[in-house]
Design a protein around this nucleic acid. Sequence first.
DNA 1: AGTGCGGCCTGTCCGC
DNA 2: TGCGGACAGGCCGCAC
Length: 297
Amino acid sequence: MPELPEVETTRQGLAPQLTQQVIINCTIHNGRLRWPVAPDLPDRLKGGMIQSLQRRGKYLLCAIQHPHHTATRTGTLIIHLGMSGSLRLTSPDEPLKKHDHVEIELSHRQVLRYHDPRRFGALLWTTADPLQHPLLRTLGIEPLTDNFSGDWLYQRTRPYRSAIKAFIMNSHHIVGIGNIYANEALFMAQIHPQQAAHALTMTQAHTLSDQIKSVLTRAITQGGTTLRDFINSQGQPGYFQQQLQVYDRAGQPCWRCHQLIQRHFLNQRASYYCPHCQRWEPQTTHDKTAMKGKKTP
DNA sequence: AGTGCGGCCTGTCCGC
DNA sequence: TGCGGACAGGCCGCAC
């Protein structure tokens, strides 16, 4: 579910509340997530003090230190919210909700609850450098850093004949962009989702990288997008869905040109685009294989 | 090496 | 009102 803005919204809400808190207890109600939660996780966490809450892609990294123990007991709790996960800080008196799978009790009498109906998320423990964890080591560039630019995007898309939408959604290239923000950024950049990645012009690459940064930044400011059930660490929804230009708007008029927004399936994911604003120009590539299966104009 | 697909889960919505 | 099927924001692991 949550993409970069929702994870970052969660991180920003939780970081000041969690830092310097000591973990009093941890209870696993249902450890059957994307990967099983280690049964000894509570033992690892108990007595530890939270040092920081960072983000890498859609992963949250909670650094934990055991002040009175050896350095070997320090480590990082790696959290992924999957499709439907959320973290909420609340009172221990509040009754458990269905799908509250893990809870972490803190020294200021608050409890952090991990809620995830579809259980596609994960809670992992590592004592090594979390960035070297197998799941994080292969992650791509952070889109909100200066390293991510039009030049970077242009260079990195050269070998890829697949659709540009699939490229920007692949976390091994760029992290944090899921189906919503991929559709939105491509609309803003006026690029058809099915255009071949390697057919991106330098101008398009610069526009697209700018729009990716813009849409993600604006979504963070709005507290993320709540389509069904995303809530932040205080239990509140995001507001960016009110500004979505194309996502989930099939059959409705484009706000720029009034043509009807189209939906079609690309890599088993719904793509939304405006056929007028995002005209597809296959003649921009001379690669025959990139033309395969495409309708003659 | 790049690409596309199946699968993991539950909840919601829509048509019958 | 009930039921079946499609679909949903992610991403690994596997064939080709």
